[in-house]
């Protein structure tokens, strides 16, 4: 069989960014705003983190990683403001502005690579993040902290309850004195910060540079993990673990003799097929936030 113990560090390395991005997407959807821009937000975060790290590595060794991750988060947060403005302030179709960000993000990232590095990707950095005594990357612990933080905020804090009410029944929330728009802005920006963090985590552990293919659909996998995990922190964590394992196996299965009978694309397919199957299986049950995708217009009942 597959030697999971030896694969575990690399599996967790793949799980971490997907989980972080998915938790961001979940917060946004809990507040009622669909964020299909996760892919683009991860891309812009990955590009910014890789660029800052490469440029600062010789100057500020030791600090460049941290500054890189922070800038990736900020970049993701700033980009998500476009989505927030369009879908919250202007009541736009949330899928349209998300699509716009996905197109824009990869364009800007590769364009700037061409300007800064004179090629279609960033230069390679010397060392990315390094593993600890257990063989794990710090991103694994970061993901765990984010998971606990999100759960605690959403289910143990009054502000979390208010945020969730914006996604269930914004009119009722507003009647109870909640500033729906402000909370939705915060939720979308949080998803931007986490999307940027996810992209930074991915690029600084899984590869040595940012390129167009760095993210390669993992933002969409994170989006799938939100539905598959039924909009609950535990569920989303499970979904991200399953999907991340699948992505890791897709890469390493060529080395595993026992799996040669499967088509090489098998594990790449798993997250997408499973998500459709569960959506069908649980259709008709109300797992999704009720007001998801709906703009909040004052005065509507």
């Amino acid at each position: 069989m597959i030697d999971f113990a030896s694969l575990l560090p690399s599996i967790l390395m793949m799980v971490a960014p997907i989980l972080i991005a998915a938790l961001g997407g979940m917060i946004s959807e809990k507040a009622g705003v669909v964020n299909i821009a996760l892919e683009g937000l991860m891309g812009i975060g990955a590009f910014t983190a890789a660029t800052v790290h490469v440029l600062l590595e010789p100057v500020l060794p030791g600090w460049s990683l941290l500054i890189g991750v922070a800038s990736g988060m900020v970049a993701g947060g700033l980009f998500s403001l476009i989505h927030a403005y369009a879908s919250i302030s202007l009541n736009a179709d949330q899928v349209v502005s998300g699509t716009g960000i996905n197109l824009l993000a990869v364009g800007i990232a590769v364009f700037l690579c061409q300007i800064i590095f004179h090629q279609d990707r960033t230069s390679a950095f010397q060392i990315g993040m390094t593993t600890d005594a257990l063989g794990l990357y710090p991103t694994v612990w970061i993901a765990l902290v984010v998971l606990l933080g999100v759960w605690f905020f959403l289910y143990k804090r009054p502000a979390g309850l208010r945020l969730r009410s914006c996604g269930e029944n914004p009119q009722a929330a507003a009647a109870a004195g909640i500033d729906v728009r402000r909370l939705r802005y915060l939720a979308v920006m949080t998803s931007g910060l986490l999307g940027g963090l996810a992209g930074a985590s991915l690029v600084l552990t899984e590869t040595i540079q940012y390129s167009m293919s760095s993210i390669n659909g993992q933002g969409f996998i994170a989006l799938a993990a939100v539905s598959f995990g039924r909009w609950m922190p535990g569920g989303v964590a499970g979904a991200a673990t399953l999907f991340g394992t699948s992505v890791a196996l897709a890469i390493s299965m060529v080395n595993v003799q026992d799996l040669r009978f499967l088509p090489p694309q098998f594990f790449s397919l798993v997250p997408y097929v499973l998500t459709i199957l569960t959506l069908v299986l649980f259709s008709g049950k109300d797992f999704a936030p009720r007001a998801i995708g709906q703009p909040y217009e004052k005065g509507l009942r």
Partner: peptide, 25 residues
């Protein structure tokens, strides 16, 4: 001119389209 400028223009156009509701508001 880095060729990715075309993707940027695609993206900008879609983002601006999503702002169109602003006229109604």
């Amino acid at each position: 001119i880095p060729k990715e400028i075309t993707w940027i223009i695609f993206g900008l156009v879609v983002v601006f389209i999503s702002f169109r509701n602003g006229f109604k508001l």
